[in-house]
């Protein structure tokens, strides 16, 4: 039975990925400027740590790790959806300019509204979503031609152009800021995980909890969208309606992630590819694996970045790009 074999394979992959993620979380907890040895970690988890150890674990490391894991999942699933819809294996929310649109609105928010209020953490993802949606609608309409529909190639081309323009816009806006804010945004654009307490987790968690299951439930639709449009229609899929809904989900996932994690490209590109090569193209299996791989990739990048000598470290986005861009090139050369 091919089906049973497939299921077994997916299950195995999920278990291995989960174990790997857990191991990585442990590594990530003990890595950092202030070290926390594995014994100290075990002691703290059992509730017998010192005050300082508890602060490091629950106050700094864990929230950041949870945010990284959630953002990685969001970006990876968003990338999976976009790759299926655009029928282009090189799509991802970063390449298509959606992250840049979300980032642009985040900058606008921070520049023109007060950051002091206690609710801004929750409003920030909404603003990012607004930017992401506007960008997505714009790219989609620009790529749409009467009679021809949306041409995937045109979609990617226009997305690349928009990403360049919006990143330029972000630099323009931030160049007017003071030294401190400008350097904050330089870091943010480079993809430094900057949400580092539990309120950020609360701001991001609902998005992931709601949208991830919906995306997974829609995976059969995504499978058919990957085929030729006529085939999907023949299979009884309302292509245009489903496509729009799924794009909205993808944009929401990446925008919410970007709002707390900064401009991170390539996670949404790499995770779905690796997932497909592990368990095949059926998204019922590939989507959860991609989510786990996204979490692993981003957490690994953040941990590597933090392990770099000085207390600030290197932003996760840079580490991801240095791994991801060559991978993208490899895919281009192979395709």
């Amino acid at each position: 039975m091919i089906h049973a074999q497939q299921h077994a394979r997916v299950r195995l992959a999920v278990i291995i990925a989960l174990l790997f993620l857990l191991a990585l979380i442990v590594v990530s907890v003990v890595t950092g400027f202030v070290s926390l040895s594995p014994e100290q970690l075990a002691r703290t988890l059992l509730g017998r740590g010192t005050e300082k150890e508890e602060l490091i674990l629950y106050g700094f490391r864990l929230p950041r790790i949870v945010i990284t894991v959630l953002a990685g999942m969001g970006l990876a699933v968003s990338g999976s959806i976009l790759q299926s819809i655009t029928k282009n294996p090189l799509s991802d929310p970063g390449v298509l300019g959606i992250n840049a649109g979300a980032g642009f609105m985040v900058v606008v928010y921070v520049m023109f509204f007060t950051v002091e209020s206690s609710t801004y953490v929750y409003i920030l993802p909404l603003f990012a979503l607004l930017g992401g949606i506007i960008t997505a609608i714009f790219i989609y309409t620009m790529a749409h031609k009467k009679g021809e529909g949306v041409d995937p190639t045109r979609l990617v081309l226009i997305g690349v152009g928009m990403a360049a323009a919006l990143n330029g816009g972000i630099i323009t806006l931030t160049s007017r800021l003071g030294q401190e804010e400008a350097s904050f945004f330089a870091n943010w654009m480079a993809g430094r995980i900057w949400g580092d307490d539990w309120t950020f987790v609360l701001a991001l968690l609902p998005w992931i909890l709601v949208l991830l299951p919906i995306a997974w439930a829609k995976s059969h639709v995504l499978n058919t969208l990957h085929l030729h449009e006529h085939v999907s229609i023949g299979l009884g899929v309302h292509v245009e309606r489903e496509r729009r809904l799924l794009i909205l989900i993808a944009v929401a996932l990446s925008s919410a992630s970007v709002a707390v994690s900064g401009g991170i490209a390539f996670v949404g590109l790499m995770a779905p590819h690796i997932a497909r090569s592990l368990v095949g193209p059926r998204l019922q299996g590939a989507l959860p694996i991609a989510a786990l791989l996204g979490a692993i990739l981003l957490l690994a990048a953040d941990t590597i970045g933090r392990a770099m000598t000085d207390p600030i470290g290197i932003p996760a986005g840079i580490v991801v790009s240095i791994i991801g861009a060559p991978y993208f090139m490899y895919l281009m050369a192979k395709k």
Partner: peptide, 9 residues
Amino acid sequence: ALLSAIAEG
């Protein structure tokens, strides 16, 4: 993306 990531780093 690659070159500017390295430059930013």
